[in-house]
């Protein structure tokens, strides 16, 4: 192997590399001349500046503009995320209520009574009555309603239990 000489046996014409640059340049000029003759109208059009810009546009164009946009985009993104979270919470609440309502339909009267009496002490009578339109929150019926005893209220609630929305209490 070492006997072989790595000398380049191929040859190039004399001054090939010297003239290479000149050849490429001539080719480009030829191409341009060809284009000029092929597209005479296009090449005769003067490339004048036909667009203008508002006065001092470039001197007023600083990187503050993109940065301001960037900030407003962040605000927009934050609001979008907040809105999305709100929608998710709303969907979750509605679906949870629907699930409770459907369970509610299967409860017997006894179950309903147990459910109602279980936390009866924690239920605000006025809130409950207000919820069912028994009293007007703006009116002064509150005192009269508070005179009713628990048994009467429970009986009333049991009678009305079909229309009663337990999910809104619990």
């Amino acid at each position: 192997m070492s006997k072989f000489n790595k000398k380049n046996n191929e040859e190039v014409p004399k001054d090939y590399f010297v003239k290479f640059g000149e050849k490429i340049l001539n080719q480009t000029i030829e191409e341009e001349l060809f284009e000029a003759s092929e597209f005479p109208i296009l090449n005769s059009i003067e490339k004048s500046q036909d667009f203008s810009i508002p006065e001092a546009y470039f001197s007023n164009f600083k990187n503050k503009k993109p940065l301001q946009r960037n900030n407003s985009f962040s605000l927009f993104r934050t609001l979008s995320i907040a809105a999305s979270l709100l929608i998710l919470v709303a969907i979750f609440t509605v679906s949870k209520n629907q699930a409770i309502n459907s369970d509610n339909e299967n409860l017997s009267s006894i179950n309903k009574l147990e459910l109602l009496t279980e936390d009866i002490e924690s239920i605000e009578i006025n809130e409950l009555a207000e919820l069912h339109g028994l009293i007007d929150p703006e009116s002064s019926d509150e005192l009269i309603f508070q005179e009713l005893d628990h048994d009467k209220i429970l009986n009333y609630l049991l009678e009305e239990s079909d229309a009663y929305d337990l999910a809104s209490i619990y």
Partner: peptide, 13 residues
């Protein structure tokens, strides 16, 4: 208001 080209420039556009 920011275009001042003549008819040939307009035709080119």
């Amino acid at each position: 208001p920011y275009f001042s080209g003549d008819s040939i420039q307009l035709a080119l556009k």
